[in-house]
């Protein structure tokens, strides 16, 4: 599954959020989107998943225009992992993951769907939580449930909106390793908005760095996560260790105050 984003623009009423976004995702690739708050990372992910409709531009899935595809078909190809949200009414973990089968089934869920949900729960190692209430889980567990639901969709592309925010370091690494592992073993690809530059450097194949709705630079982590880019995008002075290697380490040093 190849995904192409061509000249996408998006605005809320008259405030432009995304401007002229061009990017491409190849199969079995993990693409990180980094950038400061309000850069448009989540908006871009929602545009790709057709949750939001771009003003201009096209998004192509294997050369097919995504906005012209049926919603169900899009849902069969793209799995979305939102940031953690609480529900008003309770559901169990099992029912939450079973929702991921919605694009594939009608009114009834059958044995095959139940089996698939069980397999996904096992893969994510949360089978023992199956009958617990979703709202009672910890942030890390909820994040795993969301990933499980997206996997139950059997998508070609996973779209993740800051999957590691609110997680402790152990869960951050665990979630990233799970996603990395899925990308490598199941030939699906992933686009992930992420705040932590070191996680992006370590786990993604390519990084897109955004500022004010525009892509500033794109490429391998060592090409993109440079002191110059970090300075111009975040206004932060950073040291980069192992800058020529595959996974550079970024050490933020201090915030540069704007003089005006």
């Amino acid at each position: 599954m190849k995904l192409k984003v061509n000249n996408v623009e998006f605005s809320y009423s008259s405030t432009p959020i995304l401007k002229d976004i061009i990017m491409e995702l190849v199969p079995s690739e993990m693409l990180g989107i980094v950038g400061p708050n309000g850069a448009g990372k989540s908006t871009l992910i929602k545009c790709i998943d057709t949750i939001l409709k771009p003003r201009h531009g096209t998004i192509l899935l294997d050369e097919e225009e995504i906005l012209k595809m049926s919603k169900i078909k899009v849902a069969q190809k793209l799995g979305y992992v939102p940031q953690t949200t609480a529900r008003v009414f309770p559901t169990t973990v099992f029912d939450t993951v079973l929702m991921g089968r919605r694009p594939h089934i009608g009114w009834r869920s059958n044995k095959v769907d139940v089996k698939k949900v069980v397999n996904v729960l096992r893969l994510m190692e949360i089978e023992d939580l199956a009958m617990r209430e979703f709202n009672e889980l910890s942030g890390g567990q909820q994040q795993k449930v969301f990933i499980a639901r997206a996997l139950a969709q059997e998508p070609d592309v996973l779209l993740l909106d800051e999957p590691t925010s609110n997680l402790d370091i152990q869960h951050q690494l665990e979630v990233m390793e799970i996603i990395r592992n899925l990308v490598e073993t199941r030939s699906i690809s992933a686009i992930m908005a992420v705040h932590d530059l070191n996680l992006a450097s370590r786990y993604t194949d390519r990084v897109v760095i955004m500022k004010k709705g525009m892509i500033v630079d794109a490429g391998t982590p060592s090409n993109v996560l440079t002191p110059e880019n970090i300075k111009s995008v975040y206004n932060v002075e950073a040291e980069v260790i192992n800058s020529s290697g595959k996974n550079p380490y970024i050490i933020p040093v201090r915030s540069i105050r704007r003089n005006r």
Partner: peptide
Amino acid sequence: GAGDETAKSLGV
């Protein structure tokens, strides 16, 4: 019930 965005992304 899981939220409008999730529902949209699941094809509803």
